[in-house]
Amino acid sequence: MFTMGEDMMKQWAENWEKLMGDHLEKLVHNDKFISEMSKSIAATMTGKAFYSKALDEQMAAMNLPSRTEIVKVLQKLTDIEERVIDLTERFEDYVDAQQSKPAAKSAPVAEKAAPEAKPAPDAAAKEVKARKQKK
């Protein structure tokens, strides 16, 4: 008797799962449903944009930086960081290229090659010297 009840429950659960599964699957794939849901999301996002703008204006009236402005500053910092990374890479590539040049040209003459191996700092020093002279 108990087993029969358990089997019935199991059968009922399986039927429920199939019924619900089929129904929900159809719903989330339905073009009209997706379109209406998107409209609702669009309305929420438009509301958020309006609210954020109003908040920004209030902050500006109080002479305080808004979240939007702080994010802009953070994005500028990201841009600067990106630029520094790019320049560092270019500098490393330049140094690598300069270091490999004399080694390939005159490997045995180590004493003479040594000072030439660091042209970048020399060039930088000359530039600084020239700037100082200009001043």
Partner: peptide
């Protein structure tokens, strides 16, 4: 598939104007 359908309907301009 399903994600293309959602992407097609997604309010991308509203998203761009309101979300970081």
């Amino acid at each position: 598939g399903i994600f293309a359908t959602y992407a097609e309907h997604f309010p991308i301009e509203e998203f761009s104007a309101s979300m970081g």
